[in-house]
């Protein structure tokens, strides 16, 4: 495990390089770190030595594959924590960002996964990376989670959440509720679906299928 400063540096480099794709200059990294301090050249040197960063033209640096992996993980933890702090606990955004910066280094991958699932009731990140990336980028917008419409015919999935439960009460009555396993029996090109739940086939319109958030089954 890297010291927190190193993780911060990698995260900062990721932030800079993500935007333009160009290698990051020291001043840019400092700006991304946002603490007003000059960058510590010794940290950069040790990261280069350990193979997390590589030197590019001038005194700019970019992430190696190994470095990007770490940076992405940290960045993700940061987003999830910040999301949790602002949306769920109601902490104001600046404080949340600052605290997320500190917490991100001490939190385990599993806790982050669970926290992420908890926040918007969508699926656990390790399984459907694509959906989760989309979701976290939009931060707490459950519309971006995997819905029944993202599944293929024949998939068996777990219902994670149903949006607008008041309108969709009949789903509950027919046995489609959070925690229930359902199988997609048929999906037409126009997105009407048939799901099998409790041995019965239920036909569902696309707009309703869209409000059923799912995760893949264990």
């Amino acid at each position: 495990m890297l010291p927190s400063t190193c993780e911060d540096y990698l995260e900062a480099v990721l932030t800079v390089t993500e935007n333009g794709g160009q290698p990051a200059a020291p001043e840019e990294i400092a700006a991304a770190l946002g603490t007003g301090r000059e960058i510590d050249e010794t940290v950069v040197t040790s990261l280069v030595a350990d193979g997390y960063l590589e030197r590019a033209a001038g005194d700019t640096v970019r992430l190696t594959e190994k470095g990007s992996e770490i940076a992405a993980q940290v960045a993700r933890k940061h987003r999830v924590l910040q999301c949790f702090l602002t949306e769920t606990l109601g902490v104001d955004e600046d404080t949340a960002s600052e605290e997320a910066c500190r917490l991100e280094h001490g939190i385990s991958d599993e806790t982050i996964d669970r926290l992420s699932s908890y926040i918007d009731g969508a699926q656990s990140p390790s399984r459907h990376t694509r959906c989760c990336q989309v979701r976290e980028r939009r931060c707490c917008n459950p519309d971006a989670a995997c819905t029944l419409l993202d599944c293929k015919e024949g998939d068996t999935v777990l219902v994670a959440m149903i949006q607008r439960p008041g309108r969709n009460k009949r789903l509950l009555d027919l046995g489609i509720f959070p925690g229930e396993t359902i199988q997609i029996r048929r999906k037409l090109p126009n997105l009407s679906v048939v799901v099998r739940v409790k041995g019965c086939d239920i036909a569902i319109s696309p707009e309703i299928a869209r409000s059923i958030l799912v995760e893949s089954c264990p």
């Binding site: 969709n168 009949r170 789903l171 027919l174 239920i202 036909a203 569902i204 319109s205 707009e207 309703i208």
Partner: peptide, 9 residues
């Protein structure tokens, strides 16, 4: 408003 279909086959 429009409700979609939830119908048992």
């Amino acid at each position: 408003e429009q409700f979609g279909m939830i119908m048992e086959m």
